[in-house]
Design a protein around this nucleic acid. Structure first.
Length: 481
RNA sequence: GGUGGCGUCGCCAAGUGGUAAGGCCAGAGUCUGCAAAACUCUCAUUCGUCGGUUCGAUUCCGACCGCCACCUCCA
């Protein structure tokens, strides 16, 4: 029936219903811009993008906010090594982030707030928490008093004892409780800082998301997304800060994206086992990378490998071949197909296959955005269409048009089909006539059974990465990689 | 130690208390002068192991084995 989302808060699949009917507010934790993003980061960004596209497909009005953390320890450190200001580094990498994600076909969020542009809002929120006795100041830093929030741990389902038992909690003598975390960090000499009631300093990581989400989306947001590593402590802390300040739920559905792995291990910046998104994009089209990322459900780990990308490339070729073939039958006439009496048995079975694909796609996406299953529905229809075309059973063009449109529509939700005409062909104005000349010469040779000449043309072009395809309709060519 | 997840065809990956989607690879075929490309067909009586519940379990329960992740900055 309707959309169901797995909510990390309840650890259950829940019926989705937004706070305001027809509208969805969504916040996604964005990157800390001290470096380029890797494919693992891209996975989360892509899942966010697809959730948004699907909600839009379901006719919701979606407002998506994704932050950019543009000040933190890593940025300061990296800027220092590079001899740049923290601002310069963050600015450059912020632009690179947009460039990379846009190349992946990720649509920009409605708002991309930056931490450094929301200092006053964060100070206000910290002040509220101080006034409520939920925070304390030590040497110019402000800490959140975890004990003040009785529901602390409700997202990560951790009990205070569990947290304390883990000997990995950093010991900081200045904290009242090891679980307490900083909302405002006093600046050390030479570090960038902002003025605050507690002295020169900078915001802690968690406070920015609380402030910016509430500023741009209100005190309660519908969907909050992020990588699964953010569940604790980041999201737990966001909840603690926000809910203690407002007294209302911070986010209604918590969505956590599983890790992208490489060689069976989590791809992470600290492990240095990552592949930069831009490197991958230099080697593979965006649709191929998207297909790969979408080939597993977002809550299940996915292992990155060249082989997987090649698999996706082959699968996508099958899809695109089908689409290209269908396109030849496409008619502009938008005939309705409800006149059942005019339809043959073959017509009807294709129409029903299209319906099956669409309902399967929706059922899959409605079940916690099961993109893997959704892709399955698409490929099942691809098979049916291919069979139908192979049988040459005289299916009406408008039914093929219907199939084409249905496939395009669903593929666009996943972003695995690019509507812009093959970009490889954009320089062909000059090449086209030349190739056609060669093709003509070859055809003449073939007519004379001069196989040496025709094969030489074919082979030499292949060396130039141009492949000749002989079909019943004649010869065509295309670039191969 | 605490918490969560995973183990399904050679590889990737969905899924369900009633008998296993899809993709890749592979084999066969159609097409072709031969190829390539494309398309078609074939391709898991079986779902980590052992028990239990059930008329029936891959799906529920328990134990065990193996793997991963979070508890510390990382999407």
């Amino acid at each position: 029936m309707g959309l169901k989302i797995y909510n990390s808060l309840s650890r259950q699949l829940e019926e989705f219903s937004p706070l305001k009917e027809g509208h969805v507010s969504m916040y996604s934790c964005g990157p800390t811009v001290y470096d380029y993003i890797h494919i693992g980061n891209a996975r989360t960004a892509l899942v966010t993008d697809i959730i948004r596209r699907y909600l839009t497909y379901k006719e919701y009005t979606v407002k998506l906010v994704q932050n950019l953390t543009d000040i933190d320890d890593k940025i300061i450190d990296r800027a220092h090594t590079l001899g740049l200001s923290a601002h310069e580094l963050a600015h450059t990498n912020g632009l690179a982030y947009f460039e990379d994600t846009q190349r992946l076909g990720i649509q920009a969020a409605d708002i991309h707030p930056k931490a450094t542009e929301h200092i006053p809002e964060m100070i206000d929120l910290i002040q509220i928490l101080l006034d409520k006795g939920a925070a304390y100041v030590v040497d110019g830093s402000v800490y959140y008093r975890v004990n003040a929030f009785s529901e602390y741990g409700k997202l990560s389902h951790r009990k205070p004892e569990d947290l304390l038992a883990g000997a990995r909690v950093e010991v900081d003598e200045r904290k009242e409780d090891p679980r307490d975390f900083d909302m405002w960090k006093a600046a050390k000499p030479g570090e960038p800082y902002w003025e605050s009631p507690w002295g020169h300093g900078r915001p802690g990581w968690h406070i920015e998301c609380s402030s910016m989400a509430m500023k741009h989306l209100g005190e309660t947001i519908d969907i909050h997304a992020g990588g699964e590593d953010l569940l604790f402590p980041h999201h737990e802390n966001e909840i603690a800060q926000s809910e203690l300040a407002t007294g209302v739920p911070f986010a209604r559905y918590w969505v956590h994206v599983a890790f992208l792995k490489i060689d069976g291990k989590r791809m992470g910046k600290s492990e240095k086992n990552f592949i930069l998104l831009r490197e991958a994009l230099d080697k593979y089209p965006a649709e191929v990378i998207r297909h790969f990322l979408v080939s597993a459900h977002y809550r299940h780990p996915l292992d990155y490998s060249i082989e997987s990308l090649q698999t996706s490339e082959s699968a996508l070729r099958r899809l695109n071949n089908c689409l290209d073939t269908l396109k030849k039958f496409t008619t502009d006439i938008d005939e309705s197909i409800d006149t059942q009496d005019d339809l043959t048995t073959d017509d009807n079975s294709l129409v029903s296959a299209i319906d099956t694909m669409q309902s399967g796609f929706i059922r899959a996406m409605d079940t916690d955005f099961n993109t893997a299953q959704a892709v399955g529905s698409i490929f099942t229809l691809v098979s049916t269409v291919n069979k139908s075309i192979a049988k040459n059973n005289g299916i009406s063009n408008h039914i093929y048009t219907h199939a084409y449109n249905a496939l395009i529509e669903t593929c666009e939700v996943l972003g695995i089909y690019s509507t812009n005409e093959q970009d490889t062909g954009k320089t062909d104005e000059y090449l086209d006539p030349v190739l056609n000349l060669l093709l003509d010469i070859r055809q003449d040779a073939r007519n004379r059974k001069d196989w040496d000449t025709s094969d030489m043309i074919r082979d030499r072009l292949k060396e130039l990465n141009i492949e000749i395809q002989d079909t019943k309709e004649g010869s065509t060519w295309k670039f191969i990689s």
